[in-house]
Computed example of a mutant assay.
Amino acid sequence: MTVEMQLEESAERARDWSGTVPTAFDARVIGLVLATAALAASVNVPYGGVSMAAVAFAVLTAGGIGVHLLGERKLRRLTHGLVERWTAAGGTVEGVTRTGDGMRTEWIVHTPNGDVTVGGIPLVPMARLSVEWQGVGDTMDADEAAENVDRLAATLYEEIFEIGASAEQTR
């Protein structure tokens, strides 16, 4: 295969995926943040009054939403990094969409070998990344995944694009 043909194929693959991963909103996490903030703020009513409870609720809610946004951003960057490495290695990614219900922080990576679901727990101090393909999933600490994203992407690439492609051919 000539270099020109490889560059054309590479450019063709790049056109499939737009290069972006959409933001994902997790209503469950926001509900948990609001419930925890309300409970914690209610403890302040006997000691500081309603005004102190309102301030505590506002501070805790802002902090919780900030932690959620940072966690979502970390998971989105990891998803982008995985997809970017898969396409650079020669895998075909048709697109990346978020799940439609808004109740989870996860994205669906559409490939010819089947959809890969990437998501996790979007709370920064305890963020977890999960990857699921064909009913088999794995979960790991998001910080650990970020440190080893090249190795993780290579392992998943082999499983999804190489083993998955050979399984499709034998059917």
Rank of each mutant, 00 (worst) to 15 (best):
P22M: 08
W86Y: 06
W86M: 07
D150G: 11
T155H: 12
E162S: 08
E84K: 14
N113L: 13
G90V: 04
V3T: 14
V43G: 04
I108S: 00
D141P: 03
V33H: 01
G71F: 09
E9A: 14
T61F: 13
P22C: 07
R77N: 12
N148I: 00
W107P: 00
T87Q: 15
E72R: 10
D16C: 08
P122E: 02
V93G: 02
V118D: 00
W17N: 04
M126N: 08
L78E: 03
G71C: 07
H110C: 03
A88E: 15
A88N: 10
N44M: 14
V55K: 06
L39M: 11
E106Y: 03
E8V: 14
Y157T: 08
Y157G: 06
G64I: 02
L60F: 14
R98C: 01
K74P: 00
V67T: 11
L32W: 12
G135Y: 03
D101P: 00
K74E: 06
T20V: 09
V33D: 00
M52D: 12
T105S: 15
V118L: 03
L70W: 10
W133E: 09
E147C: 04
R104F: 10
M52Q: 13
S18G: 09
A41G: 08
T79F: 02
T36F: 15
E168G: 08
L152T: 02
G119M: 11
G71S: 07
V131A: 08
S42K: 04
E8Y: 14
A11N: 10
L60W: 03
D26R: 00
V118S: 01
T61H: 05
D143K: 15
V55D: 00
H110P: 01
L123H: 15
E168A: 14
